[in-house]
Design a protein around this nucleic acid. Structure first.
Lengths: 344, 344
DNA sequence: CTTAGCACTCTCAGAAAGAGACTGCTAAGA
DNA sequence: TCTTAGCAGTCTCTTTCTGAGAGTGCTAAG
């Protein structure tokens, strides 16, 4: 691929992203600063089309990038990326967040606002999160509320329906016992520890301890490593789709599918986590998505690390996305989140 | 308004809801079982139009109900409503829910599925909810996580940035003190009690108690009576709008506005709570909505009571909604939720 | 290798025309 | 007085046609 081809492709993609309309050879000849005539540009475009990087919506239209075309363009962007200098100071904006959940909620909001797309943030999988505190609260009847606080203030809770009645004092004592034993372990370790202790305790016949372990066990067991997804800005997507010259039926169908995905977050979470494996900043374009439902969309994702925890933030938008901006925004927010988590 | 007019209107609205297309005089003559000719029906329709109950999209089209027309129709439905006999057993389906939050989440899901619309559920305002348990968890530095559990398992939490450092033991003790003092009060009472005690404690100079009160106070203070809104089924709305013969621009605009409302839930909550004052089962049709943004939509809402707490469930859909079905579904779910809350 | 020129293709917007759907009105009948 | 058959009138919707416009591919010359 020659340098000229690269430059023409870059101009074409940039212009198409900006205007949303097929780009003609004459426009490229005038604006690409290569001093070429439109006929020459046409030759180049024919080559690019052979390589599957651009296509024509119909015979006498200009060119539009294909997913591969975007891919080439984005790879160049990612290669020559300079540190995001002009991006707003996300860190200052996110400062006031309390728990990790709040932080990610704000982060997804910032992403959404800054990129004018759907912004999302996935909390670190909490299997490797350390247990900070556990608490049992007596509800009516035989039901007990188990509250688990992970380091960083991440909180989750489940109602356990037990066989026996507990009184508040016993529960408090039980919680104290568990806390003294398990605090500081990861959830996985804690689960394992519980299994081991229950084996030992069976010999001791200590009612309190065995009960406490049972409760904590079922609390942690039901506490699947649900990666909570924070997601904001779905309304931007509608603007985005309105601009596309798709026929109405198709556009509506696409929208509906995406909104269903948004509602069934767990599905999206799974897809995201599969896309992330690479780590760092990743861009997934259109048909590169595993799920066909996401083929009309692109994702810009960045993972952040905090010790042994990995989470991710990013944006979702149409394949015709301002990648430049999206990348710098996602990168900025990701760094900010990372730094804030370290700071804690 | 004569009986004939009523019956014609009912047929017209039912048919329009079913088919989504203007209803002609000849269709009504054939199907209304009144044994009238289309000419006579045309006369009747002219009267209904004078009263603003129906209108013609254009000169040579059939009739379509206006908002007032729907209103008349719904009033009849509400008047002659028999107990929902055929509705599925929501209560059985909702049985497994743990906390009130879970229950309402499931309820909104059931509503959405059964009505094929957006389903929502608003938790009771928690000012009058009784305090079940309060807990302080030490986070890093000077930050403390305050967890408040209300009766029924409703849970909320805030991170408070304090001036001083606490150790875990002190926090546990503080929580125990607060629990023994405040459990069973409503949140309002608890707040008031804290203010009073702080006045007394100032004389005693008891560091522990005063700290505990301070924490609990700021915890409860930031714990605004946020009515959490559970909402599901936004994707159904897209189907609904796709059917409408509005021009694309307008439809997209309408959708965007609604999705923005859905994202900024607090706005919607406020609107809903204003619509509910009546209590029981209410239907708000199109332009009857306070917010102009909701004028293309109708709401079917039912409040449920549980002691001194009031919450609500309902559905949101286009004005051309299957009111019959929506009403019976909302009524059914509302009763189920009410009964399940009582059962606790 | 580049470029001017040209024929060709396809879309888009607008106009025209015919079919179809309903209505409102009128005048006759019960 | 109420109902109804009949009919002219209106409006939309679909189809067809047309011309303009945009942009391309190809060819032949520089």
């Amino acid at each position: 691929m020659t340098d000229r081809q690269r430059r023409i492709l870059a101009s074409l993609v940039a212009e198409y992203i900006d205007q949303g309309e097929p780009v003609s050879s004459s426009w490229l000849a005038e604006h690409s600063a290569l001093g070429l005539s439109s006929a020459t540009v046409r030759n180049i475009l024919a080559r690019l089309e052979e390589q599957g990087l651009v296509r024509q919506p119909h015979t006498s239209a200009g060119r539009v990038p294909t997913d591969s075309g975007y891919r080439r363009y984005v790879d160049v962007l990612l290669g020559t990326r300079r540190r995001s200098t002009t991006s707003p100071d996300f860190q200052a904006r996110l400062q006031r967040a309390g728990t990790v959940g709040d932080l990610l909620e704000h982060a997804s909001h910032e992403l959404s606002q800054a990129s004018q797309q759907i912004g999302f943030a996935v909390a670190p999988a909490n299997t490797s999160v350390r247990l900070q505190h556990i608490d049992f609260v007596n509800l009516e009847g035989t039901r007990v509320l188990v509250i688990v606080v992970a380091a960083g203030g991440q909180i989750s809770h489940r109602v356990i329906d037990t066989d026996e009645r507990y009184d508040s004092a016993a529960l408090t004592e039980a919680a104290n016992y568990i806390n003294s034993e398990l605090t500081g372990m990861t959830l996985d370790e804690a689960r394992q520890a519980i299994v081991e202790r229950m084996r030992e305790e069976r010999l001791l016949y200590d009612a309190l301890m065995s009960r406490a372990l049972k409760l904590a066990g079922s609390g942690l067991a039901e506490m699947q490593p649900v990666e909570t997804l924070h997601l904001q800005g779905a309304s931007f997507l509608i603007d985005g789709m309105a601009g596309e010259p798709l026929d109405r039926q198709r556009a509506m169908e696409t929208l509906r599918v995406l909104f269903r995905m948004i509602e069934e977050k767990h599905q999206l979470v799974e897809l995201l986590s599969r896309s992330i494996e690479a780590g760092g900043l990743t861009v997934v374009i259109g048909s590169e998505n595993i799920s066909p439902d996401l083929h009309p969309f692109s994702l810009v994702i960045s993972t952040f690390q905090n010790g042994d925890r990995t989470g991710s933030v990013g944006v979702i938008g149409p394949t015709r996305m301002r990648y430049q901006r999206a990348i710098s925004v996602v990168d900025g927010v990701s760094r900010a989140v990372s730094r804030l988590l370290e700071g804690q």
